[in-house]
Structure formats: C-alpha cells, structure tokens
Amino acid sequence: MNFLKKASGSLLPIAEAQLSNNSAIHTSAVCCRVQSGRYRITTKRDRPLTYEMANPPHFIGHRKSWNSWNTSTLKDSLRPSQTAIEDVFLRKFITGTWHALVCSEIIIKRQHNTIRIAAIIRQAISPRKMYFLIGYTEELLSYWMQCPVTLELQTVADKKDVVFKYI
C-alpha cells in the first residue's frame, strides 16, 4: 500500500472509502435441491410408478437394490469408468432394440467375464419375434463386449402389472 500512497496521494482516500463500502461478500441462498430419480405428483394422481421409480435414490441399499452389479465399483478395482460407459451403452441398446417393450429398469450383472442382463418385457410381440430379439441382442452385444452376454427376461401380460402406485 505504501508505494500506492506515494503514487497517488489524492486518489487513495476515495478508493479506500469505496473498498470499505463494497467489501461485503456477495451471498445467495444455498441451493440444496435434488431432483434426480424423484417424480412429481400429478394433479390427477395418475402417473404410474414402478417400485423402482417409487423409491428415490437415497433408498438404494435399503428399500431397493442396485441396477448394476459388478466389482469395478469396489475400491482399487480395474476399469471403473469403462464399465460404467459400457453399462450405459447396454441400457441404450436394449431399450432401443426392445422398443417400447421394456417395463422395468435394465439390470446388468457381471460375473467373471460374463454379462447377465435381466429385464421385464411386455408380451406385446409374438414369442417367435421375442426369441429372435433375444438371439440378436445376445449375439451383437457379445461381439461388442467381447464376452458372453446372457439375457434373462421375465414377461408380463400388461404394462400395468409392474405399476406399484400412482402419484
């Protein structure tokens, strides 16, 4: 500050006064809002929720379980990021291939080098087409993932079978 005093003797008091006026830290309300994985109540109370959707993420491990089961999430494990990206890809591929048929979350379990994918599928297509899609999905995914992929599907007659509650 001393060299400033020497440099501009007259301007300094004004600058100091301004500094003291505006020296307070700018603050705003803390945004603690968490929205992901939570659903809003509709006015008609007609939004269907599955059990998975009805329980928000902080109930994972208490009321509901994880959708991806692998060892990459353990401490000091290998390929955590690659596994996560692969899981995203698997989910996208399955929801797209089984278009408008998947009624639940897609559960991906990895065991050694095999990947087991479980889901609940609507009985909207003929069993023949379903068998084709199973083979198609397993074949393509095992080629891309370079490991055996197994589909373990459960079918429901109607979409409403998986609905847990309406909000």
């Binding site: 599955t50 059990y51 998975e52 509901k64 379980s65 994880w66 959708n67 089961w69 009624c103 639940s104 979350e105 559960i107 379990k109 479980a118 609940i120 373990e152 459960q154 429901v156 079978d161 998986v162 847990f164």
Partner: peptide, 14 residues
C-alpha cells in the same frame, strides 16, 4: 409386499 411376479427387486439380488 409386492409378489414375486413382475418384481424387479427379486431379479436384482443375487
């Protein structure tokens, strides 16, 4: 509790 049919929780747990 939800029954075993169309129950994804039962499919998740090993």
């Amino acid at each position: 509790a939800p029954s075993k049919y169309a129950n994804a929780e039962l499919m998740k747990i090993p």
